[in-house]
Design a protein around this nucleic acid. Structure first.
Lengths: 244, 244
DNA sequence: ACCTGAACACCGTTCAAGT
DNA sequence: ACCTGAACACCGTTCAAGT
């Protein structure tokens, strides 16, 4: 929701042709490609954040005209999806190794996804809610499904639990990452609410809150994810009749 | 990521003073208020969606100048947070009734939040990741905490499980709602991937996927939420040593 | 004091023109 | 064919001027 446009005079001043600045050069023919553009976009997003990832910025990074990207990508959505897939491939493409513990394997996929989202928080929501239908995605689903089957779930149950387990993993990771990507001031104020407002509510009106006063953490508490993950694993073990 | 700006000529043509159109009237003094603006914003968001909720649109809805809103709200963020709280209060302000089953009570809070997010999908992410520190929020936390304590959890455990259970509820609800709010064409394409691409992957490379072929649903499958919810409740029961 | 007009610094996207 | 320039239809926000 932070749509503030901060003053950024570089663009306008770069228009003023200072006598020492290099003459404007036209990019040579065929010097652009999807790969080059994706790389430039990644540098921009990493350096300046997602809401600074604009055609203007990509053009500047490439020393090309902002609209030249349109020759290579239909629109911004296509560019972002391709970028997401590139990042995913780099983080965990083809790296899952089956062990003899389904529980360890499920924990591994879940944590790898979680860590990946926290590494690229700007893209987390997009990663969580879109299907890219590419090899890395296929392989991840296949690996998780294998672990669920080895846990002892029937194929039908495995499909259901895959959805619950996978959506929980992606949704909680995306939310945690989104909170990290909030403007620092906003995040600090929200975190503080749990340390101040929530701890000073009158005990007559909020007896339970008063009792856990000192244990209460903010909603961005990173332990929430691990706790929920172990709960899901416990529930699967329970379902297939294993002790935990 | 859908930042497409669709052609919308009404604004520009409204500039052309057609001889029959009512003369431009100045809004009477003190005729605006936070309440009126929030109501107008809600109508716009409900009618046209979040990315059409602009100062232009609110101004038009109020028959006032777009920038007049700045007299009443510091910026758009403040307006949206106030709107979110209003909607929450209307959906489930002060309605939680304790029963003698902690499990039913937790299920109720979780479902009420889930349904509320699906009712206002544009605001779901904001609702899930921000703290508004208002009475409705306090009461919801207090109610959930009470149920966790009645389940038999220690205060310290109750605080930890509150975070896991609450974040899971909000994150999964927000993700499901976000997928609903996707441009229809995008969502259709993503859902279709699970019915087409994923079902036609070669069995040699993806044996587990091949086996669950007919059970596989898309990531927007609404049953994922209920499954995950019951898993969380099972895990809490397990923790406090109750049979399920 | 409250509302308005005009301006500023941005966006994504289209399309005719340059090379 | 590929890249560029200019234009279009938008954004949020600031601030001096009208009433």
């Amino acid at each position: 929701m932070d749509q503030t446009r901060k003053g950024q005079d570089e663009l306008s001043t770069s228009k003023a042709k200072s006598p020492t600045s290099a003459a404007k050069v036209r990019r040579p023919r065929d010097s652009l490609s999807r790969e080059l553009i994706i790389e430039a976009a990644e540098r921009v997003a990493h350096r300046d954040g997602l809401d600074r990832l604009t055609f203007q910025a990509i053009g500047k990074e490439l020393e090309a005209h902002p609209t030249s990207v349109y020759r290579h990508f239909r629109d911004k959505d296509e560019l972002v999806l391709e970028l997401i897939d590139t990042l995913r491939g780099r983080s965990y493409g083809g790296t899952f190794q089956e062990t003899d513990s389904w529980r360890d394997d499920l924990r591994t996929v879940s944590r790898v996804i979680h860590d990946h989202y926290l590494k690229y928080p700007e893209f987390a929501l997009e990663m969580a809610s879109r299907t890219t239908r590419r090899p890395t995605e296929f392989a991840t689903v296949e690996f998780a499904l294998g672990a669920l089957k080895r846990a002892g779930l029937s194929p039908a149950d495995a499909a259901v639990y895959l959805r619950a387990f996978g959506n929980m993993t992606r949704a909680m990771s995306a939310m945690e990452a989104s909170m990290h990507a909030l403007p620092q001031e906003t995040r600090r104020a929200d975190d503080l609410a749990w340390q101040v407002e929530y701890r000073s509510l009158p005990a007559e009106d909020y007896p339970h809150l008063a009792e856990v006063r000192d244990e209460l953490t903010s909603i961005s508490d990173p332990r929430a994810f691990d706790t929920a993950l172990e709960m899901m694993l416990d529930a699967i073990a329970l379902r297939v009749g294993q002790d935990t």
